[in-house]
Design a protein around this nucleic acid. Structure first.
Lengths: 248, 248
DNA sequence: CCGGCATAAAATTTCGAAATTTTTATCTCG
DNA sequence: CGAGATAAAAATTTCGAAATTTTATGCCGG
């Protein structure tokens, strides 16, 4: 299978040794942005990044360009890169777009998916349900494994939609939303019963009840959206929470 | 307004002097790919490109990375870049995706567009109708001005959809399709009356008749698709027409 | 005291060569 | 004669410094 058109996390071989430096830095930096270690709006100076990731100019710039393609950083000629800003307006647009695209994708997937597709969904759900949301019991801590499985579950739902373009777009929007979820989670996350939500979506999907599946999926998105807004009621154009330390 | 998320031609300042070299090369190379001067499937060696565009390694690589984000070139670690391949399968996927996304975008746009939006469509259509499809009367020759206006017309239709993400995706898919249109046009293009098609779409749109507008727009896409298939009936995975000269 | 112009500092962008990695060609052995 | 290992060639990737451009500073004039 070819690589997704809109690059996404997909196969994580970050920090690895086989790939190029540029790819490794891209992966590491991507995670730093998604988890909020590099806060929205922050300027990304070349010196700072070179020191932080221990590489030269070229792979750094290459990683930045790829991140710009994902919409995680923005670039202005002769004026460098910065982490994409977040705002309630942008979140709203994101939610809207996500609902439109995922609805189309899910309906297509349900219409065309085969038995292997069904099985992969059951499997993805099972794995996700066994993984704790937070890496720590005490307070919320980013759990890469859960994020990976969650991403895979949602990706699996629409995997049979028949368009790598559409699947890639959904992926990209999913990653964008992840950034907001992390922001909200940092404060306080009396997480609703996500497992049940996912289970219901799975069941409706493999039962080929497209109307119900879409309804549940969209509600799932809207609930997440509401939760984010509750905890981050008034997002400004830039980062709404503390500047990051320069720690490596 | 912010830059489109999925970068697109939009503001053409190519070959210019104000921007960076990387941007200039990106623009020139983009056009070379869209017009088929750099044929699908071709390997893009660094030496060749550096000579062709007269720049060093860095801006070249930067341009390539941005083109990869647009899906116009593909990259494999340690194995360089090549122009994305074309195939009938890919064209089919492209058409499908385009219909889904443009339908959503157009309906939203019709629902929310204001008077200024209406006027911009009328204006875009007028300009497009005055421009010849081909730069030469004798045989088809790529006419950048027509392409620009055509792109703007279609972009204008969905401009009020309320999602820069969705608009950007439509842009990207439009550019991808352009590549196929150029391939077909190189052979023989007894072009159907495109002006009327565009006029009908415009009229239905500003009359807020969303069902009709969508029907016409989708038919427009399907007709273009059929025309491409007629002229390029059996596209293989790689470039179906002659290798390009290394001429600068 | 404020505003604009020259100057200095900082940051981005670009170059060209060095270092890796892949690809091709050659040679040896079964 | 073919397969596999070895060596040469070619191509991609990376580095670090030079060149441009932007941003900040200081100075002079109104």
């Amino acid at each position: 299978m070819e690589k997704p058109i809109v690059s996404a996390k997909s196969d994580i071989k970050a920090g690895g040794t086989g790939a190029t430096l540029a790819t490794s830095v891209y992966d590491r930096m991507r995670e730093d942005i998604l988890t909020g270690k590099l806060p929205p709006g922050d300027k990304l100076r070349a010196d700072f990044l070179r020191a932080r990731y221990g590489v030269g100019t070229s792979p750094m710039r290459e990683a930045l360009n790829r991140l710009a393609a994902d919409g995680l950083v923005v670039h202005e000629d002769q004026r460098g890169f910065r982490v994409s800003a977040v705002s309630t307006a942008e979140l709203e647009e994101l939610l809207k777009t996500r609902c439109w695209l995922e609805e189309t994708a899910l309906r297509q997937s349900i219409a065309h998916g085969d038995a292997a597709w069904e099985e992969s969904i059951v499997l993805s759900f099972h794995r996700l349900s066994r993984q704790p949301r937070s890496a720590s019991d005490a307070s919320y801590t980013f759990n890469p494994e859960w994020e990976k499985l969650h991403h895979e579950f949602h990706r699996g739902l629409i995997a049979a939609c028949g368009s790598r373009w559409l699947a890639g777009y959904c992926d990209q929007l999913n990653d964008q939303t992840l950034r907001y979820r992390q922001i909200a989670a940092q404060f306080d996350d009396p997480r609703r019963n996500e497992v049940d939500e996912h289970r219901e979506i799975m069941e409706a999907t493999i039962a080929r009840d497209d109307d119900l599946a879409v309804k549940l999926l969209i509600r799932h998105f809207e609930d997440t959206d509401a939760l984010i807004r509750k905890h981050v009621p008034d997002m400004r154009d830039s980062a709404p929470f503390g500047k990051i330390s320069a720690a490596v």
